Amino acid sequence: MAPLVGTWQLWAVLAAVFAALTAIFAKIGVANVGSDFATFVRTIVILAALALMLTLTKGWQSLSTIQPRSALFLVLSGLATGASWLCYFRALKLGDAARVAPVDKLSVVMVAVFGALILGERLSAMNWAGVALIAAGAILVAR
């Protein structure tokens, strides 16, 4: 039996968690920033995190026009995106794409839950039924 860290399921679930946090942090961070500029900032953060990983094996890298709160959440969103991508590609390397991708899409379920808990968003009973079906579908495909 492979250790948990070597399973595609762990990496796919971690990818889903970080993808869900990406949406939540971006929603907060983009509040007073244009969406294209917010995406640009997020992308810079992703590149820096990947560059840091490369820095550990030999790597490199001031933005002052963004309000501190927005900057904080855009940075957090970028970090969550990078973590999601790393976990997703690790899961793809270890497992079948047809099984990894649906587990990764559990981020849709997590965004609904995090959106309700963190952002105070309200979903109808029909919406929650859809969220439950997404979760059930991802679990069934992964098994």
Rank of each mutant, 00 (worst) to 15 (best):
R99T: 14
V33T: 09
A51V: 09
F89L: 09
V45F: 03
L47V: 13
T57Y: 06
L86G: 10
G59D: 13
V41W: 07
V108M: 08
W85R: 04
L54G: 04
L52R: 01
D36Y: 12
L106N: 03
F37P: 00
V30P: 01
A71W: 13
S64E: 14
T81R: 02
F73Y: 15
W85Y: 11
T81S: 07
G29T: 10
V41G: 04
F89I: 06
T65P: 00
P102F: 13
A98S: 15
V30Q: 08
D104A: 14
Q61Y: 00
G29V: 08
I66E: 12
A31I: 04
D104E: 14
L92V: 08
L72V: 05
A23C: 05
A23M: 11
L54F: 06
I46W: 02
D104N: 15
A101I: 11
F40E: 08
F40Y: 13
K105R: 15
V103T: 14
V33Q: 02
S35D: 10
T55N: 05
M53N: 06
A83C: 12
G29S: 12
V108R: 00
L86D: 02
P102N: 14
G78H: 09
P102G: 12
T57N: 06
G29P: 09
V100Q: 01
M53S: 03
C87M: 05
K105V: 09
T57A: 10
T39I: 06
I24H: 07
I44R: 02
L106H: 03
A97D: 10
A83K: 04
V75M: 04
T55V: 05
A23P: 02
V109L: 12
D96N: 12
M53T: 07
F40W: 12
V100Y: 01
K105H: 15
G95D: 06
A80I: 00
T43C: 14
G59C: 10
N32Q: 13
L94F: 06
S35W: 09
L63D: 00
F25P: 06
L52G: 08
W60R: 03
I46Q: 13
V100E: 01
K27M: 14
V45E: 03
A48S: 04
G95V: 03
L54I: 06
S77H: 08
G34P: 12
P102E: 13
S70T: 02
K105F: 15
P68R: 08
V100R: 01
K27G: 14
L106V: 05
Y88L: 14
K93M: 08
K93Y: 08
L106W: 03
S70D: 15
W60D: 06
L21H: 00
A31T: 13
A19I: 07
A101P: 03
S84W: 03
L63K: 00
N32S: 13
G82T: 13
S84F: 03
A80D: 01
L52Y: 08
L94D: 07
S64Y: 12
G34I: 08
A26Y: 13
K93I: 05
R42T: 14
K58M: 00
A98Q: 11
L47E: 01
N32G: 08
L72G: 01
L52S: 06
A71F: 15
D36F: 11
F25A: 08
G29L: 10
V41N: 02
W85S: 04
V100P: 00
F25S: 09
K105D: 12
A98E: 09
Q61R: 02
V41M: 14
S77F: 07
A80W: 01
S84H: 10
